[in-house]
Design a protein around this nucleic acid. Structure first.
Lengths: 141, 141
DNA sequence: CTCAATGCAAACAGTTTGCACGACG
DNA sequence: CGTCGTGCAAACTGTTTGCATTGAG
């Protein structure tokens, strides 16, 4: 498929029901989801849908800039609806809970000399560790 | 950390040559490397070494806290020697160049209300975009 | 001598892709 | 109708694992 320029996406023109379903699942979830979860949700509506289709649509939607792909752990890709404001993730290694938070990183960027001249398009910040309750349990050993 | 640098590793009880080789390759590289690259380097010294061994050692070394696993792109795991000070990555989407930089993130952390009570062990910050020279080429479209 | 670590190959999970058919515009 | 998108299955990639063997301590 010839790569289309940003803005020249045909999401509006030929929107299959499956593609809409993927987008709907993601927007309902209002958080990150792995492809398999999306697959299972979409399957409820379209039992014959295939994982391949899910991946293809995720790719399309990602290229269209509608969704975002993040990697919280190293096995899986997670996807989420691209909201206006960027947010980052706080990941608990104990219970796997993921908390989202916002923070303006422009300041940091301007204080990183190595980044001068760099046109930054994407920012990824993640803290991982143990949440309050998991910390307690960890303490007891 | 109490562990010493390559040449005298103290992880479990046994330090195999292959394990030392992995560590040595990584410390020589003084940067991140994918497992396959490490594999190929180690292979020069131990032609019969297997990828499985590399992965097993990377896992062991990671658990021992000697090396770190980072994900710059979504396909591969990259590994690097854990230095004293944490650093982050500036990734050029054009030429693939990776620049490392340091920045104290404690301040940010203390300003993220969601993180209160959280015991943060690891921090990951990445900026991606186009470096100065790649930006120029991009401009011409 | 013992047991951790190895080599090898087969198994895995997540993701991608080729093909013929179906459906969107 | 012409394509784009789909379902299906098979291929691929990076990583893990079972098993018999080796070798460090």
């Amino acid at each position: 498929m010839a790569s289309s320029l940003p803005g020249n996406i045909q999401i509006g023109t030929r929107a299959s029901r499956q593609r809409q379903a993927v987008l709907e699942v993601l927007s309902r979830a209002k958080g990150h989801m792995p492809a398999v979860d999306i697959y299972q949700k979409v399957q409820k509506k379209f039992p014959r849908v295939s994982l391949g289709t899910i991946y293809r649509n995720l790719k399309t939607l990602k290229e269209a800039g509608l969704i975002e792909e993040i990697h919280l752990d190293e096995h899986t890709h997670y996807y989420e609806i691209k909201t206006g404001g960027e947010h980052y993730h706080l990941l608990c290694l104990g219970c796997g809970k993921v908390v989202e938070f916002k923070y303006p990183l422009e300041y940091i960027l301007s204080n990183v000399p190595e980044a001068s001249g760099f046109r930054v398009l994407n920012t990824d910040l993640r803290f991982s560790g143990y949440c309050a309750s998991c910390s307690k349990n960890e303490d007891s050993r």
